[in-house]
Amino acid sequence: MQEPPDNDDERRQRDRRQQARRAIDHLPVDVIERIETGPVMITGIVGRLGRRLARQLHRSRAVIGLDRRPFPDRPKDIEHHEIDIRRNKAKDIFRSKRLAALVHLGTMHDPTRTAEEQQTWNVLGFQKLLEYVRLYDVPKLVLLSSASLYGARPDNAQFLGEDAPLLGAGAFSEMRHLVEVDMLAQSFFWKHPKTETVILRPAHILGTVHNAPSNYLRLRVVPTLLGYDPMVQVVHQDDVVRAIQLALRPGVRGIFNIAGPPALPLSRGLRMLGRKSVPLPYPLAKAGIDRLWRAKMTGFPAPELDFIRYVCMADDRRAREQLGYQPQIDLEHTLASVDEGEWG
């Protein structure tokens, strides 16, 4: 006779906690200290997520920002460098500071930029950063990737684990460079075990951020697809910030899906937000959005329709068990956060 299942789960959790402890035991004391107290570099700090992370971190430790945009209203103790990550000047900062960690939020998601710019910024820029991390032995690297990279497909399992293939670029080739960035981090993880590499793949991040899901929910009249109502996962920006902070602890490494409150049908989310929605037949919606996209009248490329058509949900059990992550913000507040102001 086998043990009842809940004991089984408990045992698995206990094993994982022990594993995590052992991971710290292997680290030299000075490395642990460096990770815990050293300065953290945040790329893309001027973005809305970057600012929130900086506000959480700067009271307890030094924060260095790296962004080509200016950061005028930053707290006094944050050191900000207004440079392009592709420039060699970035290297000097790595050389002069004994960084505890690099948090890479500076991936370009804006689909209206040219493919070439996105490609060189994301792939070449990140490759340079990886080189500096290796050269100056930065002990921690955190990349904010995305669960959308798994792709929304009709034959997806309801919950995709971290080992699911990144098929998002199959139907949406503009996503290719984001997949490449994730892959670069994965190979870095194996090639340079001295650096603790963490890849976070959050579900649709909602909040004051300007990403596709938040912008979609901010539309006054929300188009949906006739006959499709997939389950969607959303996560509040502050829960993502919390996950990044957890990933910065010594001993944490690997890929983690990050999800928020329980998943819900898209239609229910729109009802909870009180949005008016217009269901359109898919071929019509696709043709319409293609037109608008070519006329540069919309920020949504047509392949993104798949995310309101098919399911793309991440299994966040690993984050809950190994990272100790637990979403704090409930569904209503997560959804409502798209309407909040800048610092709401």
Partner: peptide
């Protein structure tokens, strides 16, 4: 799996508790 790519059909199946046929 193909039933879950059809409009209405996919939503109907998922609302009445029938899921995509994958082992996970």
């Amino acid at each position: 799996k193909w039933a879950h790519s059809l409009p209405f059909v996919s939503t109907f199946f998922s609302r009445v508790g029938q899921v995509v046929g994958v082992p996970e």
